[in-house]
Nucleic acid binder design. Sequence first.
DNA 1: TTTTTTGTTAAACAAATGATTAAAATATTT
DNA 2: AAATATTTTAATCATTTGTTTAACAAAAAA
Lengths: 205, 205
Amino acid sequence: MENDITTEEKIKEAARRIFQQKGFAGTRTRDIAEEAGINLALLNYYYRSKEKLFEIVMEESLKQLFSRIQWVLNNESTSLSEKIDTVVNLYIDLLKENPNIPLFILGEVQANPDKFRKKVGVPDAFMPQIAVVRQIGEQIRISGMEPVDPFHFLVNLVSMTIFPFASKPLLKLLMNRNDEDFIRFVEERRKLVPVWIRSMLGLKE
Amino acid sequence: MENDITTEEKIKEAARRIFQQKGFAGTRTRDIAEEAGINLALLNYYYRSKEKLFEIVMEESLKQLFSRIQWVLNNESTSLSEKIDTVVNLYIDLLKENPNIPLFILGEVQANPDKFRKKVGVPDAFMPQIAVVRQIGEQIRISGMEPVDPFHFLVNLVSMTIFPFASKPLLKLLMNRNDEDFIRFVEERRKLVPVWIRSMLGLKE
DNA sequence: TTTTTTGTTAAACAAATGATTAAAATATTT
DNA sequence: AAATATTTTAATCATTTGTTTAACAAAAAA
């Protein structure tokens, strides 16, 4: 049988699943080994330590959550309205596959803020320069609303898209819904969130 | 000197701070003892175990985040618009004092969904009966928009209010803002979020 | 004051856990 | 095939960590 997936990859995938669900402190190397179906010692053979393996998983998770979106938001050749649609679609697609990513990252940052200072450090005065922020600023002027910090709308977009996934287990309990219901609920938001955001900004459909 | 605060309370307060920041797995009993300035053995003397102490902290955190809000949302004698204002104000007040609560609860639920089945279990078909859901449903009909699940607006309200706190450390990094800036940003949202929600619902100011 | 109860401390225990080692199995090279 | 290198395994090590114990101190009751 040709088992294309190498042992090294099996370990990383298992680590990803468990780290993302339980966090660094809540994960035991033995859990990862069991999930991967390999001997405990192989973890230290391929990756030097639990910490090192975690670094890799975290790095990739950050990349998943930020890199594509960052590119979209900074694209000078798409309209604000297109950006809104794209971001919502990208996030919902990603989080349907991998709903634990947001809490994983946020939780680790909250537990260990120092470790992330450098990792997520954004060059000073870069963010305000990003295309979408400028476009939101313009739209605020155009629509004639009172001046507001453009970041509010970015936060709204991300909040309304990501938060339902971050609170998925709680939502399911509170709303008495199963997985299927939850997916349906989120798919409705795929259309609704962009409508709401555009409406906030006074953007016509 | 009359030190009103009893040893037992000192331990619980220290536990609350550390548990809420690091989570159950990330917290060592020795950290709690040090933070409380007491001998390690006193933790097991007053509370039987780390687990039992955690239960108490979690119980109180859930109560903080849910009980008052639940009461507000289910109040038959306030308008929908009033409820929106009240919820946003209550949450922002609470989270300014205690910004780690949301991630704490959500993280523990994600790490250990089973433990919370019973704890947060809501009586079947209770949620749809709650006053605010009915009021939102009515407003949806009145405003003449296409029929939508009223829960979307509850989720929007909670997302836009709570998510900025859940992502506070990351937001600060990404937006290059300090604590003072963050508070200002959140205070702006105290006024803005209700406006946006009302607008989504076609509610006049 | 004497006795008893309650609170506190330092030390130690036992289990859990990340990591290592040395040998065995498997694959690759010569 | 023999030799070498790589991968895997079982056992063990060393540290961390939740908990307990036994002695001591302080407070309350007698």
